[in-house]
Design a protein around this nucleic acid. Structure first.
Lengths: 201, 201
DNA sequence: CGCCGGAGGTGACACTTGTCACCCCGGCGA
DNA sequence: TCGCCGGGGTGACAAGTGTCACCTCCGGCG
């Protein structure tokens, strides 16, 4: 019997997934969470074989949870199920020792298959993802550039961004200009789009 | 027996929903679609009692489909299930004669309830949504402002936006400035954020 | 010790945006 | 007919942004 905790912020999807996976004879859903912090607590308490989690959730992301579990040597293996096919997410997931990465585009049956594969010590990466990761390359941004870009995305001016991250406005301009150049965009807005699309923000 | 077509672009969610609703004794899922155009074709062909649809899908949105059905006097009633609690979406849905509007945050059971209510001629609006629509007010943007904002969001310059929508760059500046003022933002980026958050884009 | 490299900063210049006042012109109702 | 919108446009100015060359500081490291 494979014991499973599921974390997913959309209650409807969580409920549906839990119910369907519960029908599988060899799977048992022992816990559910609707945010990252609850998921982490639940995994620590229940020590399931597998944590099946979304990435985008209130509080900790699924990747944050995976990283936390990895760093404390938890025996629970993590499978990520997410909406977004973004190369950067996959890269970060791999770094957090995530064993499975599926898209919500996939049929439900695939989830059960992936859970079994990962429980058996194998990996399960959606093929579309694997291909995309190949030709996407690594995140070219530095931490500072990422910070600046995240704020620029919200419409803040150089001056305001500078105040928030404790740099001078001129440096912020330089960073954003540099980021746009790296990402092949003409300005901060385009740079933000590209970075977000690739899962680099 | 209530006959149902479900449209939803995430195959996993579509499958889960269809399976679970199929278990309800009084509901029958007669068709599934993963994009708006397919959903419209399917509804025309099968004439179900209810179309349960997401908003954001490739091709036509769920609201577009609802509008098309309403304009051709279809007897199929539309229930929307979506991720986003955006007042503008709800307003447009109402204008398209949509009878139910739920969030994926809600538990699965609510969907069956809403489908039954709508099939019986009643309405079903998620309470959180109803409240939000109340204090959100109407979309303050003109069509031109919306067009310009949509392009500005992607990082295009005034000149490029002007070329695409056939106006002069100066006018585009005026529109974006006006839009930002209406939305209480300091610049086009902030204006884009606010508009998107409210479902006005 | 001296040098290097990277993080951060400055200043200058061109270009883009934001703001505002004002113009043109094709309806449309009085 | 007049007048008065309202959509679209112009021009000017201030502010913000993109680009680039060059500077400083500081922590390694040969």
């Amino acid at each position: 019997m494979i014991r499973l905790v599921i974390a997913e912020d959309q209650a409807m999807v969580l409920g549906a997934l839990a119910t369907l996976l519960g029908f599988e004879p060899d799977l048992e859903v022992v816990g559910r969470a609707t945010d990252g912090d609850a998921a982490l607590a639940l995994v620590r308490e229940l020590r399931p074989d597998i944590l099946l989690t979304d990435i985008e959730m209130p509080g900790m992301t699924g990747i944050d949870v995976a990283r936390a579990l990895a760093s404390e040597g938890s025996s629970t293996r993590v499978v990520i199920v997410t909406t977004f096919a973004r190369a950067g997410y996959l890269a970060r997931a791999r770094a957090a020792d995530v064993r499975g990465y599926l898209l919500k585009d996939a049929p439900v049956e695939e989830v059960a298959g992936a859970v079994r594969a990962v429980a058996a010590g194998r990996r399960a990466i959606a093929p579309a993802l694997a291909a995309m990761a190949w030709d996407a390359g690594a995140d070219p941004l530095t931490d500072r550039e990422r910070d600046a870009l995240r704020l620029a995305e919200q419409g803040l001016s150089n001056k305001e961004i500078a105040r928030r991250i404790g740099l001078s406005p001129g440096t912020v301009r330089n960073y954003l200009s540099e980021a746009a150049a790296k990402l092949g965009a003409g300005n901060r807005v385009g740079a933000g789009r590209v970075a977000r699309l690739n899962g680099w923000l």
